[in-house]
Nucleic acid binder design. Structure first.
Lengths: 300, 300
DNA sequence: CCGGATATACTCACTTCGAGTATAAAAGGA
DNA sequence: TCCTTTTATACTCGAAGTGAGTATATCCGG
Protein backbone atom coordinates (compact mmCIF):
# COMPACT_ATOMS: atom_id res chain seq x y z
CA UNK A 1 0.00 0.00 0.00
CA UNK A 2 1.43 3.36 -0.97
CA UNK A 3 1.01 6.20 1.44
CA UNK A 4 0.99 9.83 0.44
CA UNK A 5 3.77 11.97 1.88
CA UNK A 6 2.85 15.29 3.42
CA UNK A 7 4.10 18.04 5.68
CA UNK A 8 2.45 18.07 9.07
CA UNK A 9 1.83 21.31 10.92
CA UNK A 10 0.08 22.13 14.17
CA UNK A 11 -2.01 25.29 14.58
CA UNK A 12 -3.30 26.42 17.97
CA UNK A 13 -6.29 28.53 18.96
CA UNK A 14 -5.32 29.46 22.51
CA UNK A 15 -7.94 31.45 24.37
CA UNK A 16 -8.18 33.26 27.67
CA UNK A 17 -10.64 35.73 29.15
CA UNK A 18 -9.42 38.90 30.85
CA UNK A 19 -12.13 40.83 32.63
CA UNK A 20 -14.93 40.53 30.19
CA UNK A 21 -12.92 40.27 27.00
CA UNK A 22 -12.20 36.93 25.31
CA UNK A 23 -8.76 36.85 23.75
CA UNK A 24 -6.72 34.65 21.48
CA UNK A 25 -2.97 34.22 21.35
CA UNK A 26 -1.46 35.44 18.10
CA UNK A 27 1.88 35.95 16.41
CA UNK A 28 2.96 38.55 13.85
CA UNK A 29 1.22 41.37 15.73
CA UNK A 30 -2.13 39.66 15.57
CA UNK A 31 -1.99 38.59 11.95
CA UNK A 32 -1.59 34.86 12.48
CA UNK A 33 -2.26 32.05 14.89
CA UNK A 34 0.76 30.35 16.45
CA UNK A 35 1.79 27.30 14.47
CA UNK A 36 4.73 25.01 14.14
CA UNK A 37 5.95 21.76 12.65
CA UNK A 38 4.88 18.45 14.06
CA UNK A 39 8.19 17.04 15.18
CA UNK A 40 8.96 13.37 14.92
CA UNK A 41 10.06 13.12 18.49
CA UNK A 42 6.64 13.76 19.95
CA UNK A 43 4.65 11.03 21.55
CA UNK A 44 1.38 12.15 20.02
CA UNK A 45 -0.16 15.21 18.45
CA UNK A 46 -1.62 16.34 21.74
CA UNK A 47 1.69 15.95 23.55
CA UNK A 48 3.50 17.65 20.68
CA UNK A 49 1.31 20.70 20.89
CA UNK A 50 1.41 20.88 24.68
CA UNK A 51 5.18 20.79 24.69
CA UNK A 52 5.45 23.30 21.92
CA UNK A 53 3.05 25.76 23.55
CA UNK A 54 4.85 25.44 26.85
CA UNK A 55 8.19 26.25 25.21
CA UNK A 56 6.89 29.13 23.15
CA UNK A 57 4.65 30.91 25.61
CA UNK A 58 5.50 29.81 29.11
CA UNK A 59 1.78 29.43 29.83
CA UNK A 60 0.70 26.11 31.25
CA UNK A 61 -2.05 24.80 29.08
CA UNK A 62 -5.21 23.53 30.77
CA UNK A 63 -7.85 22.14 28.51
CA UNK A 64 -6.80 21.02 25.01
CA UNK A 65 -8.88 19.47 22.26
CA UNK A 66 -8.47 18.80 18.59
CA UNK A 67 -10.43 21.09 16.31
CA UNK A 68 -10.08 20.08 12.71
CA UNK A 69 -7.57 18.90 10.13
CA UNK A 70 -7.20 20.87 6.92
CA UNK A 71 -5.43 19.89 3.73
CA UNK A 72 -6.79 21.99 0.96
CA UNK A 73 -4.92 22.47 -2.26
CA UNK A 74 -4.06 26.08 -1.56
CA UNK A 75 -2.25 25.00 1.58
CA UNK A 76 0.59 23.42 -0.45
CA UNK A 77 4.07 23.89 0.92
CA UNK A 78 6.63 25.88 -1.06
CA UNK A 79 8.88 23.01 -2.06
CA UNK A 80 7.22 20.40 -4.23
CA UNK A 81 7.66 17.49 -1.88
CA UNK A 82 4.02 17.28 -0.94
CA UNK A 83 1.17 19.24 0.53
CA UNK A 84 0.73 20.54 4.03
CA UNK A 85 -1.68 18.98 6.46
CA UNK A 86 -2.66 21.39 9.22
CA UNK A 87 -4.01 19.95 12.42
CA UNK A 88 -5.67 22.61 14.55
CA UNK A 89 -6.27 22.55 18.29
CA UNK A 90 -8.31 24.54 20.78
CA UNK A 91 -6.60 25.31 24.08
CA UNK A 92 -7.81 27.18 27.14
CA UNK A 93 -5.48 29.23 29.33
CA UNK A 94 -6.34 30.43 32.84
CA UNK A 95 -6.39 34.19 33.16
CA UNK A 96 -3.97 34.42 36.05
CA UNK A 97 -1.61 32.03 34.31
CA UNK A 98 -1.50 34.29 31.30
CA UNK A 99 0.27 37.47 32.33
CA UNK A 100 0.68 38.36 28.68
CA UNK A 101 -3.05 38.60 28.17
CA UNK A 102 -3.86 42.20 27.43
CA UNK A 103 -0.32 42.82 26.24
CA UNK A 104 0.74 42.34 22.63
CA UNK A 105 0.39 38.74 21.55
CA UNK A 106 -3.13 38.46 22.82
CA UNK A 107 -5.92 40.01 20.79
CA UNK A 108 -9.65 40.25 21.47
CA UNK A 109 -11.87 37.84 19.54
CA UNK A 110 -14.20 40.59 18.48
CA UNK A 111 -11.45 42.54 16.75
CA UNK A 112 -11.64 39.80 14.11
CA UNK A 113 -15.39 39.18 14.41
CA UNK A 114 -17.03 42.46 15.50
CA UNK A 115 -20.46 41.15 14.44
CA UNK A 116 -20.24 38.29 16.93
CA UNK A 117 -20.48 40.38 20.11
CA UNK A 118 -24.13 40.92 21.01
CA UNK A 119 -23.65 41.87 24.64
CA UNK A 120 -24.54 45.45 23.90
CA UNK A 121 -27.40 44.49 21.63
CA UNK A 122 -27.22 43.67 17.95
CA UNK A 123 -24.00 45.30 16.65
CA UNK A 124 -24.58 48.06 14.14
CA UNK A 125 -22.09 46.53 11.75
CA UNK A 126 -24.57 43.72 11.14
CA UNK A 127 -26.84 46.03 9.18
CA UNK A 128 -24.08 46.64 6.66
CA UNK A 129 -23.16 42.97 6.52
CA UNK A 130 -26.68 41.66 6.01
CA UNK A 131 -27.30 44.40 3.44
CA UNK A 132 -24.36 43.13 1.39
CA UNK A 133 -25.55 39.57 1.90
CA UNK A 134 -28.99 40.45 0.53
CA UNK A 135 -27.29 41.67 -2.65
CA UNK A 136 -25.40 38.41 -2.80
CA UNK A 137 -28.65 36.47 -2.42
CA UNK A 138 -30.28 38.53 -5.16
CA UNK A 139 -27.32 37.87 -7.46
CA UNK A 140 -28.02 34.13 -7.38
CA UNK A 141 -30.54 32.82 -9.85
CA UNK A 142 -30.80 29.04 -9.63
CA UNK A 143 -30.81 28.37 -5.89
CA UNK A 144 -31.73 31.78 -4.59
CA UNK A 145 -34.22 30.52 -2.01
CA UNK A 146 -31.70 28.12 -0.56
CA UNK A 147 -29.15 30.86 -0.31
CA UNK A 148 -31.67 33.18 1.33
CA UNK A 149 -32.58 30.56 3.92
CA UNK A 150 -28.93 29.99 4.72
CA UNK A 151 -28.37 33.71 5.31
CA UNK A 152 -31.58 34.16 7.33
CA UNK A 153 -30.77 31.17 9.51
CA UNK A 154 -27.14 32.08 10.15
CA UNK A 155 -27.71 35.77 10.85
CA UNK A 156 -31.05 35.56 12.65
CA UNK A 157 -33.13 37.29 9.98
CA UNK A 158 -36.77 36.87 8.96
CA UNK A 159 -38.06 35.65 12.30
CA UNK A 160 -35.07 33.42 13.11
CA UNK A 161 -33.32 34.12 16.39
CA UNK A 162 -29.62 34.94 16.59
CA UNK A 163 -27.72 31.75 17.40
CA UNK A 164 -24.29 32.36 18.89
CA UNK A 165 -23.09 28.87 17.87
CA UNK A 166 -23.19 29.64 14.16
CA UNK A 167 -20.09 31.82 14.03
CA UNK A 168 -18.32 29.49 11.61
CA UNK A 169 -21.29 29.34 9.24
CA UNK A 170 -21.49 33.12 9.34
CA UNK A 171 -17.82 33.53 8.48
CA UNK A 172 -18.09 30.97 5.69
CA UNK A 173 -21.12 32.71 4.21
CA UNK A 174 -19.28 36.03 4.33
CA UNK A 175 -16.29 34.37 2.65
CA UNK A 176 -18.51 32.96 -0.09
CA UNK A 177 -20.11 36.35 -0.56
CA UNK A 178 -16.73 38.04 -0.74
CA UNK A 179 -17.16 40.18 2.37
CA UNK A 180 -13.85 39.31 4.01
CA UNK A 181 -10.37 40.28 2.86
CA UNK A 182 -9.24 36.64 2.82
CA UNK A 183 -11.67 36.03 -0.04
CA UNK A 184 -9.83 38.57 -2.12
CA UNK A 185 -12.13 41.54 -1.74
CA UNK A 186 -10.70 44.99 -1.18
CA UNK A 187 -9.90 45.84 2.45
CA UNK A 188 -12.25 48.80 2.24
CA UNK A 189 -15.20 46.55 1.50
CA UNK A 190 -14.34 43.85 4.03
CA UNK A 191 -15.47 43.32 7.61
CA UNK A 192 -13.39 42.63 10.68
CA UNK A 193 -9.63 42.33 10.94
CA UNK A 194 -8.27 39.68 8.60
CA UNK A 195 -5.55 37.13 9.23
CA UNK A 196 -2.88 35.21 7.36
CA UNK A 197 -4.10 32.42 5.05
CA UNK A 198 -7.09 30.62 6.59
CA UNK A 199 -6.19 31.40 10.20
CA UNK A 200 -9.30 33.49 10.78
CA UNK A 201 -11.44 30.60 9.63
CA UNK A 202 -9.64 28.35 12.11
CA UNK A 203 -10.24 30.93 14.84
CA UNK A 204 -13.93 30.96 13.90
CA UNK A 205 -13.94 27.16 14.20
CA UNK A 206 -12.44 27.40 17.67
CA UNK A 207 -14.86 30.07 18.84
CA UNK A 208 -17.86 28.15 17.53
CA UNK A 209 -16.66 24.96 19.19
CA UNK A 210 -16.10 26.68 22.52
CA UNK A 211 -19.45 28.46 22.41
CA UNK A 212 -21.21 25.17 21.78
CA UNK A 213 -19.19 23.34 24.41
CA UNK A 214 -19.82 25.65 27.35
CA UNK A 215 -23.47 24.65 27.10
CA UNK A 216 -22.95 21.02 27.99
CA UNK A 217 -19.48 20.69 29.49
CA UNK A 218 -18.00 22.62 32.41
CA UNK A 219 -15.09 23.98 30.36
CA UNK A 220 -15.59 27.59 31.51
CA UNK A 221 -13.83 26.69 34.73
CA UNK A 222 -10.64 26.12 32.75
CA UNK A 223 -10.68 29.86 32.15
CA UNK A 224 -11.52 30.95 35.71
CA UNK A 225 -9.09 31.66 38.54
CA UNK A 226 -9.05 29.36 41.56
CA UNK A 227 -11.81 31.30 43.33
CA UNK A 228 -14.35 33.58 41.71
CA UNK A 229 -17.71 35.21 42.23
CA UNK A 230 -20.89 34.21 40.46
CA UNK A 231 -20.91 37.50 38.60
CA UNK A 232 -17.38 36.91 37.37
CA UNK A 233 -18.42 33.48 36.16
CA UNK A 234 -21.44 34.93 34.41
CA UNK A 235 -19.40 37.67 32.76
CA UNK A 236 -16.92 35.09 31.49
CA UNK A 237 -19.68 33.00 29.95
CA UNK A 238 -21.22 36.13 28.48
CA UNK A 239 -17.87 37.14 26.99
CA UNK A 240 -17.51 33.76 25.29
CA UNK A 241 -21.08 33.55 24.07
CA UNK A 242 -21.21 37.21 23.10
CA UNK A 243 -24.58 37.47 24.83
CA UNK A 244 -26.01 38.87 28.03
CA UNK A 245 -27.60 36.34 30.34
CA UNK A 246 -30.48 36.54 32.81
CA UNK A 247 -28.81 36.78 36.20
CA UNK A 248 -31.29 34.99 38.49
CA UNK A 249 -31.71 32.15 36.00
CA UNK A 250 -27.97 31.84 35.44
CA UNK A 251 -27.46 31.42 39.18
CA UNK A 252 -30.25 28.89 39.44
CA UNK A 253 -28.67 26.94 36.59
CA UNK A 254 -25.26 26.93 38.25
CA UNK A 255 -26.31 25.67 41.62
CA UNK A 256 -28.66 23.09 40.17
CA UNK A 257 -25.59 21.51 38.57
CA UNK A 258 -23.70 21.48 41.85
CA UNK A 259 -20.47 22.19 40.04
CA UNK A 260 -19.18 24.78 42.47
CA UNK A 261 -18.98 25.31 46.23
CA UNK A 262 -18.47 28.32 48.47
CA UNK A 263 -14.95 28.98 49.70
CA UNK A 264 -16.37 30.73 52.77
CA UNK A 265 -14.75 34.00 51.85
CA UNK A 266 -16.14 37.05 50.15
CA UNK A 267 -14.83 39.98 48.15
CA UNK A 268 -16.02 43.56 48.15
CA UNK A 269 -13.98 44.72 45.19
CA UNK A 270 -17.03 45.16 43.04
CA UNK A 271 -18.52 48.22 44.69
CA UNK A 272 -21.81 47.01 46.05
CA UNK A 273 -22.66 44.23 48.43
CA UNK A 274 -19.72 41.84 48.90
CA UNK A 275 -19.92 38.76 46.73
CA UNK A 276 -19.32 35.24 47.99
CA UNK A 277 -16.34 33.46 46.51
CA UNK A 278 -16.75 30.04 44.95
CA UNK A 279 -14.45 27.36 43.68
CA UNK A 280 -14.93 24.62 41.10
CA UNK A 281 -15.60 21.22 42.62
CA UNK A 282 -12.81 19.19 41.07
CA UNK A 283 -14.47 16.04 42.35
CA UNK A 284 -16.96 16.54 39.56
CA UNK A 285 -16.05 14.56 36.49
CA UNK A 286 -15.27 16.56 33.39
CA UNK A 287 -17.90 14.52 31.63
CA UNK A 288 -20.69 16.05 33.72
CA UNK A 289 -22.94 18.55 32.06
CA UNK A 290 -22.75 22.24 32.85
CA UNK A 291 -26.23 23.24 31.88
CA UNK A 292 -29.00 20.87 30.95
CA UNK A 293 -29.30 22.45 27.58
CA UNK A 294 -29.33 26.14 26.79
CA UNK A 295 -28.02 29.32 28.30
CA UNK A 296 -30.52 31.48 30.19
CA UNK A 297 -30.75 34.45 27.89
CA UNK A 298 -31.87 37.86 28.95
CA UNK A 299 -34.13 39.70 26.54
CA UNK A 300 -31.83 42.60 25.53
CA UNK B 1 10.45 27.02 9.34
CA UNK B 2 11.00 23.29 9.08
CA UNK B 3 7.98 21.11 8.69
CA UNK B 4 7.86 17.50 9.72
CA UNK B 5 7.29 15.00 6.94
CA UNK B 6 4.68 12.33 7.47
CA UNK B 7 2.61 9.73 5.70
CA UNK B 8 -1.02 10.70 5.38
CA UNK B 9 -3.74 8.08 5.44
CA UNK B 10 -7.54 8.27 5.37
CA UNK B 11 -9.69 5.88 7.42
CA UNK B 12 -13.45 5.67 6.97
CA UNK B 13 -16.21 4.61 9.32
CA UNK B 14 -19.03 4.01 6.84
CA UNK B 15 -22.33 3.11 8.43
CA UNK B 16 -25.72 1.95 7.23
CA UNK B 17 -28.76 0.49 8.95
CA UNK B 18 -30.49 -2.59 7.55
CA UNK B 19 -33.77 -3.41 9.22
CA UNK B 20 -32.90 -2.77 12.79
CA UNK B 21 -29.20 -3.55 12.67
CA UNK B 22 -26.55 -0.83 12.40
CA UNK B 23 -23.62 -1.92 10.27
CA UNK B 24 -20.17 -0.70 9.35
CA UNK B 25 -18.23 -1.32 6.17
CA UNK B 26 -15.11 -3.37 6.73
CA UNK B 27 -12.28 -5.00 4.83
CA UNK B 28 -10.27 -8.17 5.61
CA UNK B 29 -13.43 -10.10 6.58
CA UNK B 30 -14.38 -7.61 9.22
CA UNK B 31 -10.97 -7.19 10.78
CA UNK B 32 -10.24 -3.66 9.60
CA UNK B 33 -11.85 -0.44 8.50
CA UNK B 34 -11.34 0.63 4.91
CA UNK B 35 -8.37 2.94 4.57
CA UNK B 36 -6.13 4.30 1.90
CA UNK B 37 -3.43 6.83 1.12
CA UNK B 38 -4.23 10.47 0.83
CA UNK B 39 -3.30 11.11 -2.79
CA UNK B 40 -1.74 14.34 -3.90
CA UNK B 41 -4.21 14.84 -6.68
CA UNK B 42 -7.18 15.34 -4.40
CA UNK B 43 -8.74 18.73 -3.98
CA UNK B 44 -9.25 18.28 -0.24
CA UNK B 45 -9.43 15.55 2.33
CA UNK B 46 -13.20 15.37 2.07
CA UNK B 47 -13.09 15.15 -1.72
CA UNK B 48 -10.29 12.60 -1.54
CA UNK B 49 -12.28 10.32 0.67
CA UNK B 50 -15.50 10.70 -1.30
CA UNK B 51 -13.73 9.79 -4.52
CA UNK B 52 -11.93 6.91 -2.95
CA UNK B 53 -15.06 5.45 -1.37
CA UNK B 54 -16.97 5.78 -4.62
CA UNK B 55 -14.25 3.88 -6.49
CA UNK B 56 -13.85 1.17 -3.90
CA UNK B 57 -17.43 0.42 -2.98
CA UNK B 58 -19.74 1.79 -5.63
CA UNK B 59 -21.93 3.25 -2.89
CA UNK B 60 -22.74 6.92 -3.23
CA UNK B 61 -21.84 8.59 0.02
CA UNK B 62 -24.38 10.89 1.62
CA UNK B 63 -23.31 12.56 4.81
CA UNK B 64 -19.58 12.81 5.53
CA UNK B 65 -17.83 14.43 8.44
CA UNK B 66 -14.33 14.39 9.87
CA UNK B 67 -13.90 12.38 13.03
CA UNK B 68 -10.42 12.70 14.42
CA UNK B 69 -6.77 12.75 13.42
CA UNK B 70 -4.43 10.27 15.05
CA UNK B 71 -0.65 10.25 15.02
CA UNK B 72 0.52 8.16 17.92
CA UNK B 73 3.98 6.71 18.02
CA UNK B 74 2.81 3.15 17.56
CA UNK B 75 1.27 4.14 14.23
CA UNK B 76 4.69 4.54 12.61
CA UNK B 77 5.01 3.37 9.04
CA UNK B 78 7.30 0.47 8.19
CA UNK B 79 9.97 2.42 6.35
CA UNK B 80 11.73 4.97 8.45
CA UNK B 81 10.76 8.01 6.42
CA UNK B 82 8.40 9.36 9.03
CA UNK B 83 5.30 8.57 10.98
CA UNK B 84 1.77 8.03 9.78
CA UNK B 85 -0.97 10.54 10.33
CA UNK B 86 -4.40 8.95 10.11
CA UNK B 87 -7.36 11.17 9.40
CA UNK B 88 -10.64 9.41 10.12
CA UNK B 89 -14.06 10.20 8.72
CA UNK B 90 -17.63 9.22 9.49
CA UNK B 91 -19.84 8.55 6.48
CA UNK B 92 -23.49 7.56 6.24
CA UNK B 93 -24.82 5.33 3.48
CA UNK B 94 -28.50 4.96 2.61
CA UNK B 95 -29.78 1.44 3.07
CA UNK B 96 -31.16 1.00 -0.44
CA UNK B 97 -27.97 2.37 -1.93
CA UNK B 98 -25.95 -0.26 -0.10
CA UNK B 99 -26.85 -3.62 -1.64
CA UNK B 100 -23.82 -5.13 0.02
CA UNK B 101 -25.20 -4.46 3.47
CA UNK B 102 -25.88 -7.78 5.09
CA UNK B 103 -23.41 -9.49 2.77
CA UNK B 104 -19.74 -9.85 3.62
CA UNK B 105 -18.04 -6.48 3.91
CA UNK B 106 -20.68 -5.08 6.20
CA UNK B 107 -20.65 -6.14 9.85
CA UNK B 108 -22.99 -5.26 12.70
CA UNK B 109 -21.75 -2.67 15.18
CA UNK B 110 -22.66 -4.83 18.13
CA UNK B 111 -20.44 -7.68 16.97
CA UNK B 112 -17.56 -5.43 18.05
CA UNK B 113 -19.39 -3.81 20.97
CA UNK B 114 -21.93 -6.32 22.32
CA UNK B 115 -22.25 -4.33 25.56
CA UNK B 116 -23.51 -1.28 23.68
CA UNK B 117 -26.87 -2.72 22.60
CA UNK B 118 -29.46 -2.10 25.32
CA UNK B 119 -32.57 -2.56 23.22
CA UNK B 120 -33.31 -5.86 24.90
CA UNK B 121 -32.45 -4.55 28.35
CA UNK B 122 -29.02 -4.39 29.93
CA UNK B 123 -26.88 -6.99 28.09
CA UNK B 124 -25.75 -9.87 30.26
CA UNK B 125 -22.17 -9.44 29.13
CA UNK B 126 -22.04 -6.19 31.12
CA UNK B 127 -22.05 -8.10 34.39
CA UNK B 128 -18.79 -9.81 33.42
CA UNK B 129 -17.27 -6.57 32.15
CA UNK B 130 -18.12 -4.49 35.20
CA UNK B 131 -16.94 -7.31 37.43
CA UNK B 132 -13.52 -7.21 35.80
CA UNK B 133 -13.56 -3.42 35.99
CA UNK B 134 -14.21 -3.55 39.75
CA UNK B 135 -11.06 -5.66 40.09
CA UNK B 136 -9.19 -3.08 38.07
CA UNK B 137 -10.50 -0.32 40.34
CA UNK B 138 -9.46 -2.27 43.43
CA UNK B 139 -5.97 -2.79 41.97
CA UNK B 140 -5.38 0.96 41.94
CA UNK B 141 -4.09 2.51 45.13
CA UNK B 142 -3.39 6.20 44.65
CA UNK B 143 -6.38 7.43 42.66
CA UNK B 144 -8.83 4.63 43.31
CA UNK B 145 -11.81 6.88 43.93
CA UNK B 146 -11.24 8.74 40.70
CA UNK B 147 -11.02 5.47 38.82
CA UNK B 148 -14.20 4.20 40.49
CA UNK B 149 -16.10 7.32 39.54
CA UNK B 150 -14.96 7.03 35.96
CA UNK B 151 -16.19 3.43 35.76
CA UNK B 152 -19.49 4.17 37.52
CA UNK B 153 -20.16 7.12 35.29
CA UNK B 154 -19.29 5.40 32.02
CA UNK B 155 -21.13 2.16 32.72
CA UNK B 156 -24.13 3.52 34.60
CA UNK B 157 -23.30 2.01 37.98
CA UNK B 158 -23.99 3.22 41.50
CA UNK B 159 -27.07 5.24 40.72
CA UNK B 160 -25.80 6.70 37.45
CA UNK B 161 -27.97 6.09 34.40
CA UNK B 162 -26.64 4.35 31.28
CA UNK B 163 -25.62 7.00 28.79
CA UNK B 164 -25.45 5.75 25.20
CA UNK B 165 -23.10 8.59 24.17
CA UNK B 166 -20.22 7.30 26.26
CA UNK B 167 -19.27 4.38 24.02
CA UNK B 168 -15.78 5.74 23.40
CA UNK B 169 -15.10 6.33 27.10
CA UNK B 170 -16.28 2.78 27.82
CA UNK B 171 -13.97 1.29 25.18
CA UNK B 172 -11.06 3.37 26.43
CA UNK B 173 -11.65 2.28 30.01
CA UNK B 174 -11.79 -1.35 28.90
CA UNK B 175 -8.56 -0.82 26.96
CA UNK B 176 -6.88 0.70 30.01
CA UNK B 177 -8.12 -2.17 32.15
CA UNK B 178 -6.86 -4.70 29.61
CA UNK B 179 -10.26 -6.16 28.74
CA UNK B 180 -9.89 -5.96 24.97
CA UNK B 181 -7.59 -7.99 22.75
CA UNK B 182 -6.05 -4.83 21.25
CA UNK B 183 -4.60 -4.03 24.67
CA UNK B 184 -2.65 -7.26 24.55
CA UNK B 185 -4.82 -9.41 26.77
CA UNK B 186 -5.57 -13.00 25.80
CA UNK B 187 -8.50 -13.44 23.41
CA UNK B 188 -10.18 -15.69 25.96
CA UNK B 189 -10.29 -12.88 28.51
CA UNK B 190 -11.34 -10.15 26.06
CA UNK B 191 -14.77 -8.77 25.14
CA UNK B 192 -16.22 -8.21 21.70
CA UNK B 193 -14.63 -8.85 18.33
CA UNK B 194 -11.33 -7.07 17.97
CA UNK B 195 -9.90 -5.27 14.94
CA UNK B 196 -6.59 -4.44 13.34
CA UNK B 197 -4.46 -1.81 15.13
CA UNK B 198 -6.67 0.92 16.59
CA UNK B 199 -9.51 0.50 14.13
CA UNK B 200 -11.98 -0.56 16.80
CA UNK B 201 -11.23 2.58 18.73
CA UNK B 202 -11.92 4.62 15.61
CA UNK B 203 -15.18 2.75 15.14
CA UNK B 204 -16.11 3.54 18.73
CA UNK B 205 -15.34 7.20 18.01
CA UNK B 206 -17.66 7.11 15.02
CA UNK B 207 -20.47 5.40 16.89
CA UNK B 208 -20.23 7.82 19.79
CA UNK B 209 -20.23 10.79 17.44
CA UNK B 210 -23.26 9.53 15.55
CA UNK B 211 -25.17 8.71 18.73
CA UNK B 212 -24.57 12.22 20.01
CA UNK B 213 -25.37 13.84 16.70
CA UNK B 214 -28.78 12.26 16.09
CA UNK B 215 -29.98 14.12 19.16
CA UNK B 216 -29.52 17.57 17.72
CA UNK B 217 -29.11 17.22 13.96
CA UNK B 218 -31.41 15.44 11.50
CA UNK B 219 -28.69 13.06 10.29
CA UNK B 220 -30.86 9.93 10.69
CA UNK B 221 -32.53 10.80 7.43
CA UNK B 222 -29.24 10.21 5.65
CA UNK B 223 -29.75 6.56 6.56
CA UNK B 224 -33.44 6.29 5.64
CA UNK B 225 -34.90 5.41 2.23
CA UNK B 226 -36.82 8.06 0.30
CA UNK B 227 -40.10 7.22 2.04
CA UNK B 228 -40.51 5.48 5.36
CA UNK B 229 -42.94 4.90 8.21
CA UNK B 230 -42.63 6.42 11.65
CA UNK B 231 -41.95 3.00 13.12
CA UNK B 232 -39.12 2.44 10.67
CA UNK B 233 -37.67 5.79 11.64
CA UNK B 234 -37.98 4.95 15.31
CA UNK B 235 -36.36 1.54 14.84
CA UNK B 236 -33.47 3.15 13.00
CA UNK B 237 -32.87 5.64 15.79
CA UNK B 238 -33.18 2.81 18.32
CA UNK B 239 -30.64 0.75 16.39
CA UNK B 240 -28.13 3.60 16.43
CA UNK B 241 -28.68 4.57 20.05
CA UNK B 242 -28.89 0.95 21.23
CA UNK B 243 -31.97 1.88 23.24
CA UNK B 244 -35.73 1.45 23.03
CA UNK B 245 -37.74 4.64 22.80
CA UNK B 246 -41.21 5.62 24.01
CA UNK B 247 -43.37 5.45 20.90
CA UNK B 248 -45.97 8.18 21.55
CA UNK B 249 -43.34 10.61 22.73
CA UNK B 250 -41.03 9.82 19.83
CA UNK B 251 -43.84 10.64 17.41
CA UNK B 252 -44.69 13.84 19.23
CA UNK B 253 -41.04 14.85 19.05
CA UNK B 254 -40.84 14.18 15.34
CA UNK B 255 -43.84 16.18 14.29
CA UNK B 256 -43.02 19.04 16.64
CA UNK B 257 -39.83 19.47 14.62
CA UNK B 258 -41.72 19.51 11.32
CA UNK B 259 -38.87 17.69 9.65
CA UNK B 260 -41.04 15.25 7.71
CA UNK B 261 -44.26 15.30 5.70
CA UNK B 262 -46.74 12.63 4.58
CA UNK B 263 -46.32 11.26 1.08
CA UNK B 264 -50.04 10.48 1.00
CA UNK B 265 -49.38 6.77 0.60
CA UNK B 266 -49.40 3.97 3.13
CA UNK B 267 -47.91 0.54 3.49
CA UNK B 268 -49.43 -2.56 5.03
CA UNK B 269 -46.31 -4.65 5.02
CA UNK B 270 -46.04 -4.62 8.75
CA UNK B 271 -48.96 -6.87 9.68
CA UNK B 272 -51.29 -4.56 11.55
CA UNK B 273 -52.93 -1.33 10.62
CA UNK B 274 -51.30 0.19 7.53
CA UNK B 275 -48.72 2.84 8.29
CA UNK B 276 -48.57 6.21 6.61
CA UNK B 277 -45.45 6.86 4.60
CA UNK B 278 -43.41 9.99 5.20
CA UNK B 279 -40.56 11.72 3.47
CA UNK B 280 -37.89 14.06 4.78
CA UNK B 281 -38.57 17.71 4.05
CA UNK B 282 -35.42 18.65 2.18
CA UNK B 283 -36.46 22.28 2.42
CA UNK B 284 -35.37 22.04 6.04
CA UNK B 285 -31.82 23.19 6.54
CA UNK B 286 -29.35 20.62 7.74
CA UNK B 287 -28.53 23.00 10.55
CA UNK B 288 -31.99 22.62 12.08
CA UNK B 289 -32.30 20.59 15.22
CA UNK B 290 -33.86 17.17 15.26
CA UNK B 291 -34.93 16.99 18.83
CA UNK B 292 -34.84 19.83 21.29
CA UNK B 293 -32.54 17.89 23.50
CA UNK B 294 -32.83 14.28 24.48
CA UNK B 295 -34.35 11.11 23.11
CA UNK B 296 -37.68 10.04 24.61
CA UNK B 297 -36.63 6.89 26.44
CA UNK B 298 -38.96 4.11 27.36
CA UNK B 299 -38.48 2.60 30.78
CA UNK B 300 -37.34 -0.93 29.79
C1' DC C 1 -66.76 -11.31 13.14
C1' DC C 2 -63.38 -11.65 16.67
C1' DG C 3 -58.72 -11.51 18.57
C1' DG C 4 -53.98 -10.28 17.59
C1' DA C 5 -51.02 -6.90 15.84
C1' DT C 6 -49.70 -2.54 14.54
C1' DA C 7 -50.66 2.47 13.91
C1' DT C 8 -52.30 6.72 15.55
C1' DA C 9 -54.43 10.05 18.85
C1' DC C 10 -55.24 12.06 23.28
C1' DT C 11 -54.61 13.08 28.46
C1' DC C 12 -52.40 14.43 32.70
C1' DA C 13 -49.16 15.24 36.26
C1' DC C 14 -44.68 16.95 36.97
C1' DT C 15 -40.48 19.41 35.91
C1' DT C 16 -38.07 22.86 33.71
C1' DC C 17 -37.62 27.45 31.90
C1' DG C 18 -38.31 32.43 30.99
C1' DA C 19 -39.33 36.54 33.17
C1' DG C 20 -40.01 39.46 36.70
C1' DT C 21 -39.93 41.14 41.64
C1' DA C 22 -38.17 41.61 46.34
C1' DT C 23 -34.71 41.87 49.89
C1' DA C 24 -29.68 42.27 51.70
C1' DA C 25 -25.27 44.42 52.33
C1' DA C 26 -21.76 47.23 51.23
C1' DA C 27 -19.86 52.48 49.78
C1' DG C 28 -20.25 57.36 49.63
C1' DG C 29 -22.07 61.90 49.95
C1' DA C 30 -25.37 65.33 52.10
C1' DT D 1 -26.56 59.72 60.62
C1' DC D 2 -29.34 58.62 56.82
C1' DC D 3 -30.40 58.28 52.12
C1' DT D 4 -28.98 56.93 47.49
C1' DT D 5 -26.40 54.05 44.51
C1' DT D 6 -24.57 49.70 43.41
C1' DT D 7 -24.05 45.05 43.43
C1' DA D 8 -25.45 40.50 45.44
C1' DT D 9 -28.78 37.17 46.63
C1' DA D 10 -33.48 35.12 47.23
C1' DC D 11 -38.16 34.12 45.92
C1' DT D 12 -42.52 33.75 42.83
C1' DC D 13 -45.43 32.54 38.96
C1' DG D 14 -47.18 31.25 34.59
C1' DA D 15 -45.93 28.97 30.12
C1' DA D 16 -43.81 25.39 27.86
C1' DG D 17 -41.78 20.99 27.65
C1' DT D 18 -41.28 16.15 29.16
C1' DG D 19 -42.32 11.41 31.00
C1' DA D 20 -45.71 8.05 31.28
C1' DG D 21 -49.83 6.00 30.39
C1' DT D 22 -54.44 5.19 28.05
C1' DA D 23 -57.72 5.10 24.18
C1' DT D 24 -59.10 4.47 19.47
C1' DA D 25 -58.38 3.01 14.47
C1' DT D 26 -57.42 -0.37 10.82
C1' DC D 27 -55.44 -4.11 8.94
C1' DC D 28 -54.83 -9.72 8.87
C1' DG D 29 -56.01 -14.39 9.67
C1' DG D 30 -58.84 -17.67 11.39
Amino acid sequence: MTIGLAHAELIAVLSAVTGDEPRVMTVRSGDALPSGPFELGHRSLQAGLREWVGDQTGHPLGYLEQLYTFADRDRTHEDAEGRTISISYLGLVREQAAPGAGKPGWHGWYEYFPWEDHRGGRPEILAAITGRLQDWVAAETARREHRRRRVDFAFGLDGAAWNEDLGLQRYELMYEAGLVAEAGCSPARSFGRSMFADHRRILATGIARLRAKIKYRPVVFELMPESFTLSQLQRTVEALAGLTLHKPNFRRLIDQQELIEETGEATSETGGRPAKLFRYRHAVLEERALSGSKLPLSRN
